[in-house]
Design a protein around this nucleic acid. Structure first.
Length: 449
DNA sequence: GCATGATCATGC
DNA sequence: GCATGATCATGC
């Protein structure tokens, strides 16, 4: 009897599968597997479908691939790889529709949507999207996106209606009349010709074989959503067990006290240290997110902020907020002000700490934070004083850090010429509200561990 | 070393 | 082209 191979991931654990799958991003099959290059001399187009097969066989090491059950059977997750292409203007789009399961005309008329074979196989998909290039060997195609996907929400309703429309046509004995134009997201596209025509129920006319597919436009819609948003929490069980806050915070545990270089190594990534968003990017990567937006934070309107502490525990910088329009402040009430609404939000603070000569930086802790009520009142004082001075034609002299323990006003502009009009004193350099670094220190000391 | 002024880098 | 988050520079 042959020995079952030990997999590099836990096939019962979605998290483990994602983590393993995500390592594909930015790499090719040649980089990530020891797949034999049997097609050295042939162009990619002659090996259609090979990418998916190789991905399953050499990366995920599937034992055997059952046609009708999801690939990661134990958790009902289907693996789908699909090609992207680059347009002349550089934009990346889906190269083609995504083919799903073949439609069994005879069996499908007995199914209902919720119990359908289609849904059981495709409602939970792990997409591996790679960049197809005409003259490249498929082993060298660059993998751009790896993301799980559920048929849910509005999409699910539309897909359900599409599915029902297709099934109704088959029930009516019109399988031979099916067309992709019948539906919106889910199409019934032709697949294969050599098989000849298939039998259909309720009619003697043979019908060409068809498969369900996500239409190209719909694949692009999926792609767009994958591009600008990614989830940190991969599985509902995490939230159930640890709570929302806990499941986010736990993601940082493995990195506590590590130096940034060590974190990069641990994550097997290489970031540009010189980039100004280096620490923010690193924080997102610790959360398992490689894109700019974090879905959970977007939905909950959580603002992530990075703070670097000096050796003496004092934040190197105060925290900036967007510049204000002098006239807005002059006219508005505190309650309707921008600064007020910004401070009402929940923050997610990621704290790094530098060594004495500031050559090394370690991740220290991360925590959710919102401003305590008393401190919001302090910020209110600063805002009201700012309003007063602008209206008193004294907008050169706005509240300094020494005037309030929580907040102050400072320039926030591109350069001296980047100005905004004051009510009475003409153009002045753009300014914004800041939270004092000394105040932040106090809050950091109180929160997290 | 700190407070404040000034500006950079990125992404939309 | 500009807003935004972040960081640098200067002067006391």
């Amino acid at each position: 009897m042959h020995q079952k191979k030990k997999l590099k991931y836990d096939e019962k654990d979605p998290k483990s599968i994602y983590e393993y799958a995500k390592k594909l991003i930015g790499q090719s099959l040649r980089d990530t597997t020891s797949a034999p290059d049997l097609h050295k001399d042939s162009h990619a187009k002659t090996v259609k479908g090979k990418f998916g097969q190789y991905l399953e066989k050499y990366y995920f090491e599937f034992e055997n691939n059952s046609e009708s059950r999801p690939d990661f059977e134990k958790i009902g997750l289907e693996l789908k790889s699909n090609p992207l292409k680059k347009l002349r203007d550089g934009k990346i789009v889906a190269k083609e529709r995504i083919i799903l399961n073949i439609i069994d005309y005879v069996k499908i008329i007995e199914e209902d949507w919720e119990g359908s074979h289609f849904l059981s196989k495709n409602q939970f998909i792990l997409f591996v999207m790679y960049l197809y290039e005409k003259d490249k060997n498929f082993l060298d195609f660059l993998i751009k996106y790896v993301q799980s996907w559920k048929i849910e929400g509005k999409d699910r309703e539309i897909i359900k209606q599409d599915w029902e429309k297709i099934v109704k046509k088959i029930k009516d004995g019109k399988a031979h009349e099916l067309s992709e134009g019948d539906t919106f997201y889910l199409g019934a596209c032709r697949k294969g010709w050599k098989e000849g025509l298939r039998k259909q129920p309720n009619s003697n006319i043979g019908a060409p074989q068809r498969a369900f597919s996500f239409k190209q436009k719909y694949v692009n819609a999926i792609l767009t959503r994958i591009k600008d948003a990614e989830v940190a929490i991969k599985d509902i069980s995490e939230i159930e067990e640890e709570g929302f806050e806990g499941s986010i915070l736990n993601k940082f545990n493995p990195f506590k006290r590590l130096e940034v270089k060590e974190i990069e190594e641990k994550l097997n990534i290489k970031l540009n240290l010189k980039s100004k968003n280096y620490y923010a990017t690193l924080a997102r990567r610790m959360l398992g997110v490689s894109k700019k937006k974090i879905v959970e934070f977007e939905k909950a309107d959580v603002t992530m902020k990075i703070i670097r502490l000096r050796h003496n525990e004092l934040p190197k910088e105060s925290m900036s907020f967007p510049y204000f329009k002098y006239k807005d402040v002059a006219m508005q009430d505190w309650e309707e002000s921008e600064f007020h609404s910004q401070l009402e939000k929940k923050f997610f603070l990621v704290i790094y700490k530098m060594n004495k000569d500031e050559t090394k930086v370690r991740f220290q802790k991360a925590f959710f934070w919102n401003i305590p009520y008393e401190d919001l009142q302090e910020a209110k004082k600063v805002w009201i004083e700012t309003k007063k001075r602008i209206n008193d034609k004294n907008s050169e002299n706005l509240p300094k850090k020494s005037e309030n323990k929580v907040s102050h006003v400072r320039p926030h502009a591109k350069d001296k010429s980047d100005t905004d009009e004051t009510p009475y004193e003409g153009e002045k350099i753009k300014k914004g509200f800041w939270l004092n670094n000394t105040y932040l220190k106090e809050q950091i000391d109180k929160n997290g561990y």
